[in-house]
Every structure is written in structure tokens, then in C-alpha cells.
Design a binder for these strands. Structure first.
Lengths: 184, 184
DNA sequence: TATTTATGTCAGCCATGTTGACTTATTTTA
DNA sequence: TAAAATAAGTCAACATGGCTGACATAAATA
């Protein structure tokens, strides 16, 4: 039944018909991209992980800290949408970050039900330290990948995101950009 | 207490000196890439996850199944190096895949200590079904990102991998076809 | 023969995800 | 103004998939 391409190996994976591929034969080089994406993400998260264990934190703490540092005043609800985890999962790591004075919560000015999230100076220091190796890795990769790689990779990653969330991502980014303008 | 809307925001992340950045001011657009990478991977893994629960499997099973399907005859040691997890972690999911007749183990021909791994026909079917949405997502993203995006994204992802592992990745890829140039 | 290697296995711990039920404070709405 | 909706927190239980450490077995190799 699955003997479309029965050549030498028992399985020539992905060389069978796959929906959504015009010629009905997926380019095996696209399958490479699946694997490259996995390897790249595996290594991308590795450097911060080492630092995090030093502090008794995990990857979940890193995610929270990163986004709060980058978008100060984020609400819990914003974080839930960004991370796509449950309130209870977030609560656990958030509590630990607050207990260790990495993040602070302050009631919203216009809506006092909200808990706006901010990094402490210590939290900022850690966030930057965690960001360092990731930035270095990206900068090095872009340098090695040609002049156009920044714009192209940015577009590629953006288009890999569920289109339902495109708006939210742009909105998020515009949040840091407006802050940038306040500074200049 | 940092007030909610205090304009001199406590954190202007990543705009401090960071090692490995020539002008000592990291381009904030590079920080976007950190987030885009996270969002992209978050959504990339989401489609298979839905299918996996149907089978009582998790993401760990997917990884194992993918690589065994793609590189039939893989040894346990190979898999450990690819996934960078411990033997005990792998053993747990591998056992379940074998028990459910998704993967088969056969002693190596020249070295009978080895357990060469192969997908069963059923395993191949599942592997392909899990690959489908990921391929579709990548193909769609490449189409939306310009003609050069495939080569460029491939190079970018490759260069995001620890250079220590570059050789291993190329070797892996060469296993299913002749090497192509990845180097930027 | 002795050692190394490839793999398996038991036992337990930890991080981080999940669901479900419920509370509290505050804002919005009928 | 009373009722409903919203933002967030909490408790309890459970699942997944990492980890360490110790030890077992079979086969290859020195």
C-alpha cells in the first residue's frame, strides 16, 4: 500500500504523497528544514538553561522574565496569550519570580483588578544576562548567512506563526517601538 | 515603588551594553528575532501535538518517530546524540513506541550489540501524518517570504546550531541523499 | 581472559504542562 | 444599586518528559 517509492530502504519517508504539496512529492530539502528548526531551537535554548540552573530557575521562568523585561507593564492575561499556557502554570513560576524579587506586581492605574508586571533591577540584570548568548548566537548566524538573511529570516519566522496570531505579534512589537520613540 | 505608567521605564531591555555587538547597542530588531523564534516554534509544534494525543503519545514520541522514520537503521546512540537527552528518557518513550508496534528494533548485522531502529508500516503512516502539517506550514511560510527564503532560512537555521554539531548534522543529512551546500 | 562498549532497567526526583473547582476584588451593565 | 462579568489567585490532583545514580547483560575488542 505504502509502496509508492519502494527502492532500497524500507522507508523513504516523506517521499510519499503528502497533501498540500503541488507536485505531490514533498521536496526532501523541506524535511531538512523541520530538522534544522528542531536543532536550532534545541541549541538556542541551551545557553540560557545553563545560567538558569545557577538561580534555581527553569525555562518557564526565562520566558516570563524575558517578556516582562521587554514589555514592562504586561498584564497576566497578556502573558497567558503570549505563552499559551494555563493561568495555573504561569502562577507557579510567576510566584517564584516575585518571591525572589525578580519581578514586581502593581495594580493597574485605570483598572485595579489588573496586576501589571515589571522587572526589578535585579530582574533586568538577569534578563539581560540570559538574552546575551541568544543575541550573540543570532548575530553570528545572520553574519554567516548573507546580507539579506536578517530580513528574510524575520519574514520566514513571522510567517511560521499561526496567522491568527499575526496581529497580536505586531501589536506586541509596536509596544516596544513606541517606547523606543519616547526615548529618542 | 515603581508606578504603573512612570515614563522613565525601569527597563529598557537589551539597550545596555551587550558583549558581541560591535556598536555596544544591540539592535532591538534582533530581540524581535528571539521572540519570533519562540512564537514560530510554539506554533510549529502545536499541530502534531493535537494528532499525538489521539494516539496517547507526546512530543517526545514524535521526535523519536520522526528521526527513525527519516533515517531508518538509526542506533540508540545516534538518537541520543540527535535529541541530546539521556538514555533513560529515551528508553521510556522508545519502549512505548515498540510496544505499540510503531517502531521495531533489530540487532545490527556487523555488531549485534546494536539495536537498529526501523518504523513499522503503521509507524511510517503516523510519521507522515505528523509531518504533513509541519511541511505545509513551512511551504506556506516560504511562499510568503520571497523566492530566496528557502536557501536563506536554511542557512540561518543551520548557523543557529552549535558549530560543534555542524558535522553531525551534515552527516545525518548525507545519510538520505548526497550532501548539499549549507555553508553561507 | 579481561575490559570496554551498546544497550537496557529500576527507582526516584524535579520542572512544567494539564483540568476542575472555587474565591476575591473590581468593573461594568441591566 | 444589584447583578453579572472580568482579572487574577488558589487548591488539589494528575501527566509528561526531563534528570541522576546504580546496576545488569550481551557482545566486541584488547
Amino acid at each position: 500500500m505504502a509502496d509508492i517509492n519502494s527502492k532500497e530502504t524500507p522507508a523513504r519517508p516523506g517521499e510519499e504523497a503528502i497533501k498540500g504539496c503541488e507536485n505531490n512529492l514533498p521536496d526532501p530539502s523541506i524535511i531538512d528544514l523541520i530538522e534544522l528548526f528542531f536543532f536550532a531551537y534545541r541549541d538556542f535554548t541551551q545557553d540560557p538553561d545553563v545560567i538558569l540552573t545557577e538561580f534555581g530557575f527553569g525555562r518557564a521562568h526565562h520566558r516570563v522574565l524575558h517578556f516582562v523585561n521587554r514589555y514592562p507593564g504586561l498584564r497576566v492575561a497578556d502573558l497567558l496569550e503570549i505563552l499559551k499556557i494555563t493561568k495555573q502554570s504561569l502562577a507557579r513560576v510567576l510566584k517564584q519570580l516575585v518571591d525572589k524579587s525578580i519581578i514586581e506586581q502593581h495594580p493597574g492605574k485605570s483598572d485595579r483588578r489588573e496586576r501589571r508586571l515589571y522587572v526589578t533591577p535585579e530582574g533586568q540584570k538577569l534578563a539581560i544576562r540570559l538574552m546575551e548568548p541568544q543575541l550573540s548566537r543570532i548575530i553570528q548566524a545572520l553574519k554567516s548567512s548573507g546580507i539579506e538573511s536578517e530580513q528574510t529570516s524575520r519574514r520566514f519566522l513571522y510567517n511560521m506563526i499561526n496567522s491568527v496570531d499575526h496581529e497580536a505579534v505586531l501589536e506586541l512589537f509596536s509596544r516596544s517601538r513606541s517606547k523606543r520613540e519616547l526615548k529618542g
